[in-house]
Design a protein around this nucleic acid. Structure first.
Length: 205
DNA sequence: ACTACGATCGACT
DNA sequence: GTCGATCGTAGTT
């Protein structure tokens, strides 16, 4: 995947359906990415790097597209992948996955079952044992990577405002959240909006 | 050393 | 839908 030349909005949408894999000493975890958010750098009031802000915790944001940016908040780890060239601090937040491999261990890590395993940004990192140890590393060059071959294509992508960013002017409602329509692992998905599996992913002929 | 603040989660009405 | 817990980070004394 190209994390440099497309826009961050395009990359956020391209990530939907990709099989995210985390290989640890004890387990292989994987799942399809079903929900992302774009953070557009120095102009984006909701972005950590707004107005060029830079601190030790933010350093990964300023690295080349494809760098893993993990930060903690409220005791939870958040997984991002940076985009664009160095010193252009944009990124995509991975908000939810549909578990595929290592589901039993994910359930144990989370002490939960079903959609509660990974229907939120803090939940999926706990399920897949993703920690700040990955911060600053490159995706696809180590333990965390995308398996292109096994990835899927969403039937339909829904665009919506990002979650949890009040009082950021126009950026509060900017449509920079993307998710796979009807997938039950999307955070906050209402039960009546869940679609049958055949209507979620594009059929391969 | 002290304070304020979240890109959240889980429990509850 | 609302609300409280909880703690690392960063900015200020």
């Amino acid at each position: 995947m190209d994390f440099i030349h497309p826009t961050t909005k395009e990359i956020a949408q391209n990530l939907l359906g990709k099989l995210l894999v985390h290989k640890t000493n004890t387990c292989i975890y994987s799942g399809f990415i079903v929900e992302t958010e774009a953070y557009l750098g120095i102009e984006d009031m909701a972005c950590h790097s707004y107005a060029g802000k830079n601190t030790p915790r933010l350093q990964s944001m300023y690295k080349i597209g494809g760098t893993i940016y993990v930060y903690t908040m409220h005791t939870h780890h958040m997984l991002n992948i940076t985009t664009k060239e160095p010193n252009n601090p944009q990124a995509v937040l991975i908000r939810a996955i549909e578990p595929i491999e290592g589901i039993e261990q994910m359930a144990a890590n989370r002490q939960q079952t079903g959609i509660l395993i990974s229907n939120g940004p803090g939940k999926l990192t706990k399920a897949m044992a993703i920690t700040k140890e990955l911060d600053g590393r490159m995706i696809n060059e180590g333990a965390l990577y995308i398996n292109q071959e096994k990835s899927k294509i969403p039937n339909e992508i829904i665009t919506a405002p990002r979650i949890g960013i009040p009082n950021k002017g126009d950026w509060t409602l900017a449509p920079l959240r993307y998710y796979v329509k009807g997938n039950p692992f999307v955070s906050g998905m209402a039960k009546k909006e869940v679609l049958p599996p055949l209507k979620i992913w594009r059929n391969i002929i």
